[in-house]
């Protein structure tokens, strides 16, 4: 182990980096969902054959989402620094980084939400309509609850993607493991620092992935039923 790496552990920089990475990832994902979830619902419901078709709105939202999604993150980050500055007052630091991550992730989240909702059986939606449900009730009581397991899986993928972006965003002094890897590792030619950061990142990804999937499987009543049955059969 190099002295740099040892001192990173000693003065808690590494632990702080891990904490920052987790915290920024979770916060950015949550904010991305605050925008992306309603956007995804709109994309799904205003589309052709949707609950409340508004073709022009659907096309407009779709186009915006596509534009944002086709810009590489690094370029998006540079281009939107002034926006970050306008929103949080600075074009560097963790707050600016969160803005960047949200801008990059929200359209991605919107598409994932849209596709999760589209998986909901059209027959069930129709049944709800036949019972006199209004569009708002259908979104709230049919689409979202029925798509919950799929939405959770999407959230896991989204969060891991945000984590990946956050490493790049570290270059604007956002903090976290990415910044440690670049400043202490790459700039000082300390490969072990870089690898240690990679190691911790992998651990974080694993925890998010496994935890999220566990949660998704647990909430899915279609799966739970099967698991319950399988267990019973096993006992016999």
């Amino acid at each position: 182990m190099s002295d740099v790496l040892i001192s990173l552990f000693r003065d808690n920089t590494m632990w702080l980096g891990i904490w920052q990475t987790v915290y920024l990832t979770v916060l950015s994902t949550a904010l991305a969902y605050a925008i992306g979830l309603p956007l995804g619902v709109l994309l799904c419901t205003t589309g052709r054959g949707g609950l409340a078709p508004v073709p022009w709105l659907n096309k407009l939202l779709g186009a915006i989402v596509n534009i944002f999604r086709s810009i590489p993150f690094l370029i998006l980050m540079v281009a939107f620094l002034p926006v970050a500055k306008a929103i949080v007052g600075k074009s560097y630091g963790p707050a600016a980084m969160v803005v960047m991550l949200v801008i990059a992730a929200a359209p991605y989240v919107a598409r994932m939400v849209e596709s999760s909702l589209k998986e909901v059986d059209a027959g069930v939606v129709e049944a709800a309509k036949s019972m006199g449900a209004n569009p708002f009730q259908i979104v709230w009581k049919v689409y979202l609850p029925e798509a919950k397991p799929s939405l959770l899986v999407g959230a896991v993928i989204g969060m891991v993607t945000v984590l990946g972006y956050s490493a790049m965003a570290s270059t604007i002094n956002g903090g976290g493991l990415g910044q440690i890897a670049i400043f202490y590792g790459y700039n000082n030619f300390k490969d072990d620092v870089i690898w240690m950061c990679v190691f911790f990142t992998v651990i974080i990804v694993q925890v998010i992935q496994e935890g999220g999937m566990f949660l998704a499987a647990r909430t899915d009543k279609r799966l739970r039923a099967k698991a319950g049955r399988a267990k019973k059969c096993g006992r016999k």
Partner: peptide, 29 residues
């Protein structure tokens, strides 16, 4: 529509709700 009930070939139950919660669904509406 509430005075007309409807059932389907594929049942169209809400998969994430119990039988009782499915029956309560139109009442929640």
């Amino acid at each position: 529509r509430r005075s007309i009930g409807m059932i389907f070939q594929n049942f169209n139950l809400l998969e994430q709700r119990t039988a009782a919660a499915n029956v309560r669904f139109p009442l929640e509406l």
